Measured scan of single mutants.
Amino acid sequence: MVIEDPKTNKLIEVEKLPDGTYKVTIYDKKTGEKKTITMSKKDLEKLLKAL
C-alpha cells in the first residue's frame, strides 16, 4: 500500500512482513531521502490516523 501525504510531500509505503510486523518506508519527494522502519500493527494504525 502506498499513501501520498500532500501536506508534507512524502510517500509512505507499507508492506506486511511474514512475522506480522509492518515495514514502513517514507520517501521525501523534495530531498530524495528514504527512511525505513519496522513497526507493529498498533503503531502503524496510530501513524495512519495522524495523517
Rank of each mutant, 00 (worst) to 15 (best):
L17C: 11
P18L: 11
P6E: 10
N9H: 07
T25M: 11
D19P: 05
Y22W: 10
Y22K: 00
K49I: 12
D19Q: 11
L47G: 00
E4K: 01
Y27A: 03
G32Y: 12
K23A: 05
P18S: 10
E13T: 14
I3C: 12
K23L: 03
K49Y: 15
K35V: 14
D5C: 11
E15V: 08
K42T: 09
K41C: 14
S40R: 14
D43H: 09
L47I: 09
V2R: 00
G20R: 06
T25C: 07
L44F: 09
K46R: 10
L44P: 00
A50W: 12
V2I: 08
E15P: 00
L44Y: 05
I3Y: 05
K46H: 15
T31Q: 06
K49T: 13
L11E: 02
K49F: 14
E15T: 13
E4T: 03
E33W: 13
A50K: 06
T31L: 04
A50F: 14
E15K: 08
K35P: 02
K16S: 14
I12S: 01
P18D: 12
T38D: 04
D5H: 01
L17I: 11
K7A: 14
N9F: 06
K35Y: 15
D43L: 06
D43K: 11
P18G: 12
K23R: 15
L44G: 10
D28I: 02
I26A: 08
E33D: 08
V24R: 00
D19A: 12
K49S: 13
T21I: 07
Y27L: 02
P6H: 08
M39P: 02
L51V: 07
T21G: 04
L44W: 11
E15M: 14
K7W: 08
K34P: 02
K7C: 13
L44S: 01
T38E: 03
T25G: 04
T31M: 05
K29Y: 07
T31H: 09
I3T: 11
K16D: 11
Y27N: 02
D28K: 02
P18M: 09
L48C: 05
Y27S: 05
P6V: 10
D43P: 01
K46L: 15
L17K: 05
P18K: 07
K30R: 11
E45I: 10
K29G: 03
K49E: 07
E13D: 04
I37T: 14
V24K: 00
K30I: 07
N9W: 07
K42F: 15
K30M: 11
T36D: 05
I3A: 01
K23Q: 06
K29D: 02
T8G: 12
L47E: 02
T38N: 04
K10D: 12
L44E: 00
M1G: 15
D5V: 06
K49H: 11
A50T: 11
T8R: 02
K16F: 15
G32N: 09
I12D: 01
E33A: 08
L17G: 06
V24E: 00
K41Y: 12
L48S: 00
K10E: 09
K7R: 06
V24G: 02
K10Y: 15
T21C: 12
T38L: 15
K7D: 14
K16Q: 13
E15A: 08
T36L: 09
V2K: 00
V24P: 00
K41A: 15
D5P: 01
E45C: 15
L11Y: 07
T8V: 04
D43M: 13
I26S: 10
N9Q: 07
K10L: 14
I37F: 15
K34N: 05
V24T: 03
D5E: 03
M1W: 02
P18T: 13
K16H: 13
Y22P: 00
M1P: 08
P18N: 10
A50R: 10
M39G: 01
L44N: 00
E13C: 11
L11C: 04
L48G: 00
T31G: 08
I37A: 13
I37K: 09
L47R: 00
K29H: 06
T38W: 15
K7G: 11
D19F: 08
K23F: 07
D5K: 00
E15C: 05
E15N: 12
G20T: 07
E13W: 15
V24A: 08
K29M: 14
K41I: 14
K7V: 15
E45L: 10
I26M: 06
E15F: 15
G20E: 09
